[in-house]
Design a protein around this nucleic acid. Sequence first.
DNA 1: ATTAAATCAGACAAAAATATCTTATTATAT
DNA 2: ATATAATAAGATATTTTTGTCTGATTTAAT
Lengths: 143, 143
Amino acid sequence: MSVIFSKKCEYGLQAILYLASRNEKEYFSAREIARDLKIPKEFISKILQSLVNFGIVGSKKGKNGGFYLAKNPNKIRLIDVVEAIDGLDAFTTCILGFPDCSSDVPCPVHSEWGKLRTMAFDMLSSETIDQFTEKTLRKLNQL
Amino acid sequence: MSVIFSKKCEYGLQAILYLASRNEKEYFSAREIARDLKIPKEFISKILQSLVNFGIVGSKKGKNGGFYLAKNPNKIRLIDVVEAIDGLDAFTTCILGFPDCSSDVPCPVHSEWGKLRTMAFDMLSSETIDQFTEKTLRKLNQL
DNA sequence: ATTAAATCAGACAAAAATATCTTATTATAT
DNA sequence: ATATAATAAGATATTTTTGTCTGATTTAAT
């Protein structure tokens, strides 16, 4: 299957957008995030833990604890989340998997795809989470 | 890991480009394709078989047999190969995996990413294999 | 005719991604 | 103090993807 983000990364982005779009509480537990986004609880829990290690998300243990954004949403870029979860290999390695593809000895589709990939990277790099919070809220209300 | 094409699809595209760029023989065996492209023989064999079923590649059994392009390279679009191997789901399903994402109830990044994905789709749809044969030949000579 | 070399089909194996379970630790509410 | 509910960490299980093996059939060269 062709795919752009791994499931982990999809879920991570969803969770980040979820956290950013709700400010009625300080902490959101993995349980409620999982319920609302229909993601396995233990899985999203693991993903959030790794985002905690990257400093994007914060957590509080114990009863009534949970997760929260550790940074201002206007300081979190989509690419940061992608990098934390999936890494940036997809933006640097050869799109066709030719082992020795480089700018010097490019694979046949190198330059064409390079453009597209650069666009994707730039888009992810320029767009911050806060730009999507309204839209996310609207979306969550529909679920 | 974020990724655009599956390994199968990468290998399939590589093999198609390989076939299109060489015309010194009529048939190329899975063995030599695998050797030159450094792909496991049985794996590329399976992939080529599925491309045969889609009518993109033809095959001849028996000694000195092998695979060949069943169509003129200027009639084979990159998207055809992708579709045959990975399907087109990546171009239609929600990029963030929101289960109920649609144009009516779009996910937060729907329209932004929609543009990019449409571009990718258009690029793959407009580009045919013959446009890359020279480049592929150059690439293969370097291996 | 026989042998060698190829595709084809299907079963099997290994690795990676996704998902679940279990236990420990922490913090709040009662 | 105790019970409850949360994160954290690590082991385990399942599923999907990737890769391998075996045998059948086909074709050409010898």
